[in-house]
Design a protein around this nucleic acid. Structure first.
Length: 754
DNA sequence: GCGAATACTTAGTACAAACGTA
DNA sequence: TACGTTTGTACTAAGTATTCGC
């Protein structure tokens, strides 16, 4: 691998994070909450670079030429940032479009539908499954993407096979990870190992799908009469429609949101739409509205909920469990699968992240007539609530969702889909890591290619090459275009603007430093100073020439151009594969470097967390420091101090016991020495555990490990590491995570290589 | 070939549940 | 057992990438 991708190669000193300066660019200061500071300079300084200091002569030559192109640049209209709002049209056209039902002609699963109610969901154990064809040989590591070109030839064969139901394998693989609790707990019948079966190759996602539809938000429950709303100091009874929206605001009164102009403006506008004419005439100024009693009422309710008796709480729990059992599962291809989100999102006020222009708008209640249901033709279709109708029932087995509706804030579609532990999600996840592993095999070639492209005569190619370099080196997101004014102003690589970077020919003793400062996904700030190669630096200077701060840095590039190019370099390659690849390879390398054989389990786990942390830093996964952070740190320190005292006491006792034994020379005192010795050892271990915990927590203050663990790190790396060092897998993955990664836990051996 | 629509993954946070301790 | 802390889960926004339809 080339040396400039050193985040993959050098140990990252996560322990050295210093949370000092929260003083970055002023322009972000007032931008409310979480433009969290990055203090990552240190970690990132590790990104060393070989200097490619051959004189960049060709560059100069092209510059004038390019400048010309640039000025008249109108011909390449890759970017059209100022699009018109199209939401209304979108909404209108939706109704008409979705009418046409697709005939998929999939083989109807023969037996499930007609089964009696009590056997509605049968346990995997007893069933015979539809065998699905796998497009590869049995080699785990060669999980090919589904969209292979050979589809057609296989189709015929496949269909035949589908009808021919085979019994499924249930062999248990060797080398199961130690799972201490497993036996004792109720992990019931044998889990279905979908990863040992063949996959669909015809683009269909399932052959049979049956479910009970969504759970709707409970209807609005009007406030008791004694809870008053006041307008301009006078009590006023609101119509239920207006009252409901008012309660949304009242519930958020303590939140900073409700003080923001945009939030208030949006809320008020939408609230007025729900008022009757009388209310509309009267309520004209939000400032004159007094929601205090409502707010108090809801606080009291929440207190009451907390103070409920055990029995009452149990009752609620049982009701939830009942709902889960009834609506939380579906049958997909003969297997009972958990649904991720079977509840429809309740109405409320939209809370966008960052400076969202739509914050405070009313998110309206979703009703059956908004709902599109997707299931098999021959399944028992879900019933809409009495007296209502679905918008549509369709049978599209080319998609994975069960239910969808269009949300009113952005006009986007929301879906109900399966849990990450499901076959359909798991296969996709596995496939994702296989694509990343394929990138591993050709990443050197790709890197040398984009190095070459920095010298290209064509501006568009140089821009593409520099952008790709950032994506690869810094794990930046692709940066799709967004509709201006519809969302918070955030960017990714391709959508970076001139104002987001600063160039320093020399800074802090390093040459050619680029300073990044922008808001990325979720308005999380990305701040980083990176030394880059001279050619990159010169290119950037050129890209920025004659541009305004709010002009696009890469004006001849967008994500679709970039991805088209990547597709040519490797089948299935897109910008985001680099993030997956770099995250996983970093974990693997860090684990190798940080784990030492002679350490005990807590220390090894600290190493694991540090490796995980290195990835989280690379991917810029941040979190707000927990509210109780300082306090819990303090508590931990108190514990550590106490333990230290305890240790010195124990040591003293040991010493005197030894002295005693020397004098007495009898069995009893010898034994006493042994006991004291053991006590000292025990306390030392406890102390060490606490200290490790403190270090870990401190280093984790504002870094979120979960996101990378769940989405970027090939779980087989972690599983292999656990197996290699005999670490119980549940030290690394909790129950949910173990379910999600069941395939990896089952298939990876201790020598797995990403 | 393009913009729009759609499908699906990735993301941080709020709050509930579980856990540990006095 | 009560309480405070930690951990896990649900929720849903915000991305990426592909597909659709003209």
């Amino acid at each position: 691998m080339s040396g400039d991708h050193s985040h993959n190669e050098e140990q990252i000193d996560c322990g050295s994070r210093v949370n000092d300066s929260h003083k970055h660019k002023d322009k972000y200061k007032d931008k409310e909450h979480k433009h969290k500071d990055h203090k990552k300079d240190k970690e990132r300084d590790r990104l060393k670079h070989g200097n490619s200091d051959h004189k960049d002569s060709s560059d100069k030559k092209h510059r004038d030429k390019e400048k010309m192109k640039h000025k008249d640049g109108s011909t390449d209209k890759y970017k059209d940032k100022h699009k018109e709002k199209r939401k209304e049209e979108k909404m209108k056209s939706l109704d008409g479009k979705i009418k046409k039902e697709k005939e998929n002609g999939f083989a109807s699963p023969p037996h499930v539908k007609s089964e009696p109610e009590d056997d509605f969901y049968h346990s995997p154990k007893h069933e015979r499954s539809l065998k699905r064809e796998r497009d590869v040989d049995d080699n785990d590591s060669e999980f090919k993407p589904k969209k292979i070109k050979t589809e057609n030839e296989k189709k015929a064969k496949k269909r035949k096979q589908d009808e021919d139901i085979k019994s499924k394998k249930t062999k248990v693989k060797k080398g199961e990870v130690t799972d201490g609790k497993k036996k004792g707990k109720k992990e019931p019948e044998e889990k279905w190992k979908w990863w040992e079966e063949e996959r669909y190759t015809d683009g269909s996602k399932w052959k049979f799908l049956e479910h009970k539809g969504p759970v709707f938000a409970p209807p609005y429950d009007p406030l008791p009469n004694q809870v008053k709303f006041y307008y301009d100091g006078k009590t006023m009874k609101l119509s239920p429609e207006a009252e409901e929206v008012a309660t949304f605001f009242a519930k958020m009164l303590d939140h900073e949101y409700t003080t923001k102009d945009i939030f208030r403006k949006n809320f008020f506008k939408d609230w007025r739409k729900e008022m009757n004419s009388e209310e509309k005439a009267k309520i004209t100024d939000l400032k004159k509205c007094n929601f205090a009693e409502m707010s108090e009422y809801f606080k009291a309710q929440s207190e009451a909920r907390k103070a409920m008796s055990k029995a009452e709480k149990l009752k609620i729990k049982e009701e939830n469990e009942r709902l889960l059992q009834e609506y939380g599962f579906c049958i997909m291809d003969n297997h009972k699968e958990r649904i991720a989100n079977f509840r429809i999102e309740p109405p409320g006020l939209f809370r966008g992240r960052g400076d969202h222009p739509k914050m405070g708008m009313l998110k309206r209640r979703i009703r059956p007539k908004d709902i599109i249901v997707n299931c098999s033709k021959d399944s028992k279709h879900p019933e809409p609530p009495p007296g209502t109708k679905w918008k549509e029932v369709r049978h599209d087995n080319k998609v994975t969702w069960l239910v969808s509706w269009t949300e009113n804030i952005q006009g986007s579609i929301k879906y109900i889909m399966l849990n990450p532990s499901s076959r359909i999600k798991g296969e996709k996840d596995w496939q994702k890591y296989e694509t990343a592993r394929r990138l591993k095999k050709c990443v050197d070639r790709i890197r040398s290619q984009y190095h070459e492209d920095w010298k290209s005569k064509e501006m568009r190619i140089r821009q593409r090459a520099v952008a790709l370099y950032f994506i690869d080196k810094l794990a930046l997101r692709a940066g799709n275009e967004k509709e201006e004014g519809e969302t918070a102003d955030t960017v990714g690589c391709c959508s970076l603007r001139v104002e987001h970077i600063k160039l320093y020919p020399e800074k802090d003793g390093q040459e050619y430093v680029v300073e990044f400062d922008f808001l990325g996904k979720d308005s999380i700030r990305y701040y980083n100073k990176v030394p880059v190669e001279k050619r990159v630096f010169k290119n950037l200077q050129l890209f920025m020439e004659n541009k305004e701060p709010d002009d696009d840095l890469f004006d001849r590039l967008n994500t679709s151009i970039l991805n088209k190019h990547l597709q040519e370099l490797m089948d299935g390659l897109t910008a985001k594969v680099f993030r997956t690849y770099n995250a996983s390879i970093t974990l693997q390398q860090q684990l190798k470097q940080l784990t030492s054989a002679d350490e005990n389990i807590p220390a090894k786990i600290l190493s694991y967390n540090r490796a995980n942390r290195a990835v989280a830093i690379l991917c810029n996964h941040q979190r707000a420091p927990p509210k109780t952070f300082e306090k819990s740190m303090q508590n931990l320190q108190t514990k550590i101090d106490a333990k230290r005292d305890q240790l010195s006491d124990a040591k003293r006792e040991l010493k005197s016991a030894k002295a005693d034994a020397k004098v007495r020379r009898d069995e009893k005192s010898k034994k006493a020495v042994e006991t004291k010795k053991k006590a000292v050892e025990r306390i030392e271990e406890q102390l060490m555990k606490l200290e490790v915990q403190a270090t870990d927590r401190e280093e984790n203050k504002q870094i979120a490990l979960g996101t990378s663990k769940l989405n970027y790190l090939d779980p087989r790396i972690s599983v292999a590491w656990c197996k290699k060092w005999s670490i119980p897998i549940e030290k690394i993955y909790n129950k949910t995570q173990r379910e999600k990664f069941a395939w990896a836990i089952d298939m990876a051996d201790d020598d797995y290589e990403f």
